[in-house]
């Protein structure tokens, strides 16, 4: 776990996740991080309790409709018995194997990868397997082979990288398993990995990056990032 930088989602993002108001891609990477990070799991629990409380005490919208037909329709339906519940379906892909490493995927990523992963070799020892999750984000697994280096790049919109195995470094630090790394369009970076690194990355799709998400995924990390750079130079 990275000590210098805060490699966890902000409370604001976690709250949106609790409320269910984020695009699916962001939800997926948050869910995967929570499975790997006890601290954020606890924070999630607290935020959810608070949200439930404000939901049940908060203002209600008056419903113009009469729902009485609805109730009588619903109670015609059979109820589930506990024994109706089959065992959960296991995903067919639960592990990713890379060179001599194998890594067990968080549950939600195993589901997302269930249709199979098609790895594509990119420049600099980087491998990429895209996963089609929604239209608002671009999601992909990234495997950086040992000694690899991505070209210096910038993104439109935001990029979240969740480290699953191994580690990578850029100008602001080194990131290890479970780290949740947020970058936005103002950050130019050039990640390198000495030991190799498996990540799951979510990017705003070019269509949506201007729509308010940019405000959400930002400032404190960026501020710290700048300070780190300033110290180094």
């Amino acid at each position: 776990m990275n000590i210098d930088l805060d490699c966890h989602p902000t409370t604001e993002i976690l709250n949106k996740y609790v409320q269910g108001s984020l695009p699916t891609g962001w939800n997926v990477v948050l869910s995967a991080h929570l499975e790997l990070c006890q601290k954020c799991r606890h924070e999630y629990g607290d935020l959810e309790s608070a949200e439930v409380l404000s939901w049940s005490k908060g203002p209600v919208e008056e419903v113009a409709n009469d729902f009485s037909d609805l109730v009588s329709n619903i109670i015609q339906q059979p109820q589930h018995a506990a024994a109706d519940t089959p065992l959960p379906q296991e995903s067919s892909i639960t592990e990713i194997h890379m060179l001599d490493h194998s890594f067990t995927l968080p549950r939600v990523l195993a589901k997302a990868a269930n249709d199979g992963l098609e790895w594509k070799k990119l420049a600099g020892g980087i491998n990429q397997a895209k996963v089609n999750i929604d239209t608002e984000t671009q999601c992909e697994f990234i495997y950086m082979s040992p000694g690899s280096q991505t070209p210096m790049h910038r993104h439109q919109g935001n990029e979240i990288t969740l480290v699953l195995d191994g580690s990578f470094s850029d100008a602001s630090g080194t990131y290890e398993a479970a780290d949740f790394v947020i970058r936005n369009s103002e950050d130019e970076h050039q990640p390198v990995s000495e030991e190799g690194c498996l990540c799951f990355a979510v990017l705003d799709s070019p269509l949506t990056f201007t729509q308010g998400l940019a405000r959400l995924f930002n400032p404190i990390n960026r501020f710290k990032f700048r300070k780190t750079i300033a110290h180094q130079s």
Binding site: T24, V28, S31, V108, K111, D115, T135
Partner: peptide
């Protein structure tokens, strides 16, 4: 909403939210 937007059905809400906070 995902069904309405015809998003791929690879993940559902039950995959996304922790079900009992560990």
């Amino acid at each position: 909403l995902r069904k309405l937007k015809r998003q791929p059905n690879c993940v559902t809400a039950d995959d996304i939210w922790p079900q009992d906070n560990g």
